[in-house]
Amino acid sequence: MDLKDLYRDVILDHNKRPRNFGRLEPCDTSADGNNPLCGDRLTLTLRLEGDRISDIKFDGKGCAISTASASLMTEAIKGKDGAAIKHLSELVHQALTAHGDDSAPPAELGKLAALAGVREYPARVKCASLCWHTLDAALKHRANALGEAPIGPATVSTE
């Protein structure tokens, strides 16, 4: 296990220059995520066309892993529809949590595969998955709003 597997160049780059950083105003749905263990906080704002994400931004403060993960996620899911996002989300979770698995992550992960080094650092998995949990909360929040079902607070916490 090498530190360079965790802090790959793609991750250091997205940490230093996060893509899609900021807030969309107005937006169709949003959610806050926080990881109390390390103080990571992020806010996702999304614009939707049907179940397709037409635009997304993230805002907040966090460690390199959580910032890079959010930045990579926004790039990867922009323009994708609900089914494609669900599929991608599952692949990411498998890649992050496959502790001890030496096999290469699936090619369809693209740049998101850079996060796979996290699997050898169990304490850091939450950092990488925070944005995906927050995305899930934002999309559920939207679904609830459209279905006029009672809306819970659109906030997730990894604790």
Binding site: L3, L6, P36, L37, C38, G39, G62, C63, A64, I65
Partner: peptide, 22 residues
């Protein structure tokens, strides 16, 4: 330029146990 959580991981890699967080 280094978030405390990242610092904790790098220090751990060098055998140094420090607490990071609030």
């Amino acid at each position: 330029g280094v978030h405390p959580h990242d610092l904790g991981t790098i220090l751990d890699d060098e055998g140094v146990a420090v607490r990071t967080g609030h």
